[in-house]
Design a protein around this nucleic acid. Sequence first.
RNA 1: GGCCCCGUGGUCAAGCGGUUAAGACAUCGCCCUUUCACGGCGGAGACAUGGGUUCGAUUCCCGUCGGGGUCACCA
Length: 554
Amino acid sequence: MNYKDLADLMFPDAKDISYYEEKYPERNLKEGAIVTRIAPSPTGFIHIGGLYQGLIAKKLANQTEGVFFIRIEDTDQKREVENGVIGIINALTDFGFEPDEGMISETEEKGKYGPYKQSIRKEIYQAYAKYLISQGKAYPCFCLPEEIEEIRAKQESAKIRPGYYGVWAKCRKLTVEEMAEKIKAGEKWIVRFKSPGREDRKIKHKDIIKGNVEFPENDQDIVIIKADGLPTYHFAHAVDDHLMRTTHVIRGDEWLSSVPLHLQLFQELGFKPPKYAHIAPIMKNEDGNKRKLSKRKDPEAAVSYYEEEGIPKEAVTEYLLNIANSTFENWRRANPDKKIQEFELQLNKMSVSGALFDMVKLLDVSKIVISKMTAEEVYENTLKWAKKHNKELANLLEKNKEYSLKVLGIERGNKKPRKDIGKWSEVEDNISYMYEELFEKDKNEYQYQVIKNKETISKILNTYISKYYNENDDKQTWFDKIKELAGEMGYAKEVKEFKENPGKYEAHVGDASTVLRVALTKRTNTPDMYEIMQILGKDTIENRFRKAISEMEK
RNA sequence: GGCCCCGUGGUCAAGCGGUUAAGACAUCGCCCUUUCACGGCGGAGACAUGGGUUCGAUUCCCGUCGGGGUCACCA
């Protein structure tokens, strides 16, 4: 009985690995092309951190004319969620991070390096496990979970390093005959990797993001094939990323400490190891402590949150890029109109430690993104959002498309567009006073500022509408008339004049304008009032003023 | 606890032995053919800490403290 016989006994049907090596040849890509992937569990849910990884992987592959693929890591059947794949693919595709290869639906896939779902690659893993066993580099382990528990308890009470290694690796010391006998006797087994490592030796590794790191070698005989016949993450990683010819493994930095093990696995399997880039997670501050954004506690961790809030995808992407490479911000300022795709992401410039998620900053990015959109784009985006989250608004927008376009076009499209919309959910509040239906229901109070006296307000409103306002005035004339109105009321026509002569005037032209604005919109903050009046029309203006006056009388 | 990673203003961050220690968001003030916003200008605000090494340390080394990760038949 030798290792080869043992391997045959354990995996009689497994193919020789040469079969797979030939089936999945080296990719024929240009020099420097990066092949990378995103490898989620099919939970149906994608975390903002996952999206972040997807963005980085996608960009890198695109930049180098490489390949970005998606592989589903479903080796843990307990985690399985029905229809868990499609949600992830949709989220990725939505954001424009569509993979070149891999799963495209719950069951279908594209690409020549599949299957891209681990559970159906079972025989591949077994072939490689068999290979390892035949080389004496892996062995069956018959320890029951309870025994492992016992060992661990002993180790803990003796305060020594826990795990299956050295003297504790019982099954490792079995002879091939003993192993074969147990198998023949029907004892349950799993497969463990026979680690060649020694804890007292160091291994140096250069991570693309983290830089040089040094670890003790791995000496744990980790399990590579579980009782259900499926591989553990570590083994699947080595086999898959080798066969799929991944050049760069981009993953969360919680994997950093597994690098010694993974390198060992590649070594013993005879594979060329990929380059690793371990990204720091996006964090959240809680009671002064940093912690990873959690899908249970933090709504903003879910990618769906941004859709619900109406934060544009481009804004989320730009914000993420900001975290990834701080040079992005400068690039964006220098190239305000370029596509995100043109920005060249540099892995080695990524931060080593986790950034705190900053919603305020995201919203600022979002405001800039939205401010650059045309009225048409804002309209379409808002409508799309409203159809799902605000039916009433959607109806209104659809019913008054031309009008809405005008409203949304106020102070837009010029060199200094307004930056007042951060998310689609804010649009309603921003424009509701432009629609009679909504204005009637508007709960805001009339909050006059400097000029508060009822009679004065009535006088300003009445005088303005009867004596001064003319729809055909151009902006300059319109404004000159407001100045005249101010003069008639005894206010300063110029703010400067007002400031230079404290006490001389009780108000200035701006204060008079505020009265008009508040009466018109119930707001002290609106875009250009000239345009608002033009769009509203004289009748509406008059009605609004009347309403404002009668409101005061109550 | 062992091992590993990290520590520049409130936040994201440049910086790589000699700098007035960039920039962005936030904040404050001023300015800007009406307010708000936008924009412009300006202010306040940081190298966790103690030791070294060095003519000189934010930059290099060690300790301390703080934060994070990891130690599964989960990924």
